[in-house]
Amino acid sequence: MSTVEVVSERQKRKNRSRRDSRASYYWYTIPGILAFVAVIGYPLFQNVKTSFYKWNGYGTPRYIGWKNYVDLFHDATFWASFAHAAEFIAAMSLVPTVLGLLFGALIFDFVSPYFGQGWTTFVRASLFMPQIIPITVISILWNWLLSPNTGVFNTVLKSVGIHNPPNWLGNSHTAVLSISIMLVWIQIGYTVTIFVTGMGRIDPALHEAASLDGANWWQRFRVITLSQLAPEISIVILTTAVAAIKIFAPVQIMTGGGPGTSTYVPAFFSYFNFFTTQKVGYGSAIATVLMVILSVLAVAMFRFQNRKGVDL
């Protein structure tokens, strides 16, 4: 068989298979798209629709136009819930990012090269542990740690001479702070893991050259590590901010939104309207606002990742 024949035969097959396959690949998206429509698309549509109705969940819904949204706009609890969400963004996103960068650099630059892989694994595993424990379990654990009389926090505080330690979750001034401390404890494992992995990606020659030029650790951290980790930092801030805006379980389990409305967050506020006061239309409006905010963040994330490396 001559070469020419083979090539033309191959060329023919190639053309045919290209034409066929483009179309036939569409079949593979059918399960995913059908499932998406039934479980996500349709419920989302229903939720947005319900937000224009007054409904208690079982009777006949009554169309009221934008009234739920107008009410929301004038509802102090709604704005307060977003203010608390902002505090939780600080606790889940900003603080863990800063601490994660610092701890990560200490682990990568000191523990790993001076003390070896065993210790590195121990440190990383200890910090990562809260990441895999169910949030409900963490919530009851911290409820117990923070209990005013028998809790671990106040036992420690009393033993160092503070005689009336705070009633952490029972006081409207300290409740958000208490949950925030817990969130920092949970979240560090995620940021450290991402950043340490990112540091492995940085070309060691950069650090080498800088230290030959007499840069100390702090200078190298600031100039080299931080700038090289820019993609990781952006992605970590975005993903953790999304998670913080979605917070529900700790509030529902630890404080039930209280004392008063001092720990209300948007997710809890909508749940409360759905299932406690049965103002389903109003709850749907809150959920819709939340959805819009998160979708904007999702699109930002998608854009960012596409720019950085996703090449399809």
């Binding site: 396959s21 529900f248 948007p266 709850g283 999702a298 699109v299």
Partner: peptide, 27 residues
């Protein structure tokens, strides 16, 4: 397969994963 409209499908899924469960739970 690099089907046409793949970016649209991906973007849709990315949003789907980010929507709060609160906006799905009652329906």
């Amino acid at each position: 397969g690099r089907i046409r409209g793949r970016y649209f499908v991906l973007g849709l899924f990315m949003v789907a994963f980010t929507v709060p469960q609160e906006s799905l739970v009652f329906p």
